[in-house]
């Protein structure tokens, strides 16, 4: 490391070439001063700050203070228990939905149609009529009339028509 004399000489040579005015100003007192015994007191003040516990940054301490109440053992345990129940509930619900969809996907269309035939009374009639009135419904509804004789078919239609209201019948045309 160069000593301070060499440093001074370096900068003086540089300033002589660059700016004699600034070189002249450098020789003057800067005018900046410090209070008496400042540096002796500075050492004491820094030493005192070092023995005090390190403070958290202001924004961090504000956030921590806002949530400190939740760190009380009883509350923390309650929050943890609620969180576990919510997570478990969501997991079970999700699992059931997934399994239902998966099981339904495994059914063949014959099995589905057979189920609907067997449980036709459980379906909402208005919904069936609306569906039948739509293009999709008309084209896709299968009444399975192949296995019915003429008499059975007549009874079926009579039963079906009795349940329909007149305005719903209009929808079919």
């Amino acid at each position: 490391m160069k000593d301070s004399q060499n440093r001074k000489s370096d900068i003086q040579q540089e300033l002589e070439a660059l700016s004699p005015l600034l070189l002249r100003l450098k020789g003057q007192e800067s005018g900046l001063t410090v209070p008496p015994n400042y540096f002796r007191n500075l050492e004491k003040e820094v030493a005192e700050k070092l023995v005090t516990p390190q403070q958290e940054s202001s924004w961090l301490s504000k956030i921590a203070a806002s949530y400190r109440w939740s760190l009380q053992p009883k509350l923390a345990f309650s929050f943890a228990a609620i969180a576990v129940l919510v997570v478990a509930g969501l997991w079970v619900l999700n699992r059931n939905q997934e399994s239902e969809v998966a099981e339904f996907a495994q059914l063949s269309s014959e099995e589905i149609e057979s189920y609907i035939d067997r449980n036709i009374d459980d379906f909402d009639l208005d919904l069936l009529v609306e569906y039948a009135a739509s293009d999709q419904g008309v084209s896709s509804i299968k009444l399975h009339t192949e296995s019915l004789n003429e008499e059975e078919l007549g009874e079926y239609l009579d039963d079906y028509i009795d349940e329909l209201e007149l305005d719903k019948l209009d929808d079919l045309y």
């Binding site: 100003l25 003057q28 007192e29 800067s30 005018g31 900046l32 001063t33 410090v34 209070p35």
Partner: peptide, 12 residues
């Protein structure tokens, strides 16, 4: 109170 420089230092 801890500055007692002349005008030149002030301008600097």
């Amino acid at each position: 109170p801890y500055f007692d420089g002349n005008r030149a230092q002030m301008l600097l």
